[in-house]
Amino acid sequence: MLAGGAARRLGGADKPAVRVGGRTLLDRVLGACADAGDTVVVGPRRPTARAVRWTREQQPGGGPLAALAAGLKHTAAATTLVLSADLPFLRPETVRALRTALVDGGPEVEAVLLCDPDGHDHPLIAVYRTEPLVRELALLAAEHGSLFGLPLRLLTAELALTRLPHPTASFDCDTWEDIAAARARIRDDGSVLDEWITAAKAELGIELDVDTTALLDLARDAAHGVARPAAPLTTFLVGYAAAQRGGGPEAVAEATRKAVALAERWAAEAADAAEADGAAVAKAEESP
Rank of each mutant, 00 (worst) to 15 (best):
L81G: 09
L65A: 09
G62F: 05
A51K: 11
A111R: 05
E110F: 02
A36D: 14
A49H: 06
P88C: 09
V134T: 15
K73A: 15
V95I: 14
A36R: 09
V52D: 10
P64S: 14
L90H: 00
L68F: 08
P107R: 14
E110H: 06
R56N: 14
T94K: 01
T130C: 08
L68N: 07
A76Q: 15
A76C: 12
A141W: 07
L83S: 07
V82K: 02
L102W: 07
T55A: 13
E110Y: 03
P88F: 10
A126I: 01
I125Q: 15
G106F: 00
I125R: 10
G62C: 08
P88Y: 10
Y128A: 12
L72W: 03
T130G: 01
T80Q: 06
G106I: 03
T80W: 02
T94S: 08
R46Y: 06
G63D: 11
G37D: 10
A141M: 04
V134P: 14
R96Y: 05
A138N: 12
T55S: 09
T48M: 02
L124Y: 13
V40F: 12
A49I: 13
A78R: 09
V52E: 02
G105K: 06
W54Y: 11
V112E: 05
P117Y: 08
W54L: 01
L133P: 13
L98F: 09
R46F: 00
R56D: 15
A66R: 00
R50V: 03
L81C: 00
T80K: 09
G106Y: 08
V103H: 13
V112P: 02
R135S: 15
I125D: 06
R91M: 14
A85C: 06
P123K: 08
L113M: 04
H74Q: 15
A85L: 04
R129D: 12
V40H: 10
V127E: 12
L113N: 13
A126M: 00
A66S: 11
V127N: 12
A138Y: 03
G61L: 08
P92L: 06
R96M: 02
K73G: 15
V95T: 05
T39Y: 02
A78Y: 00
V134K: 15
D86L: 00
T94C: 11
E108Y: 06
L81H: 08
R99S: 14
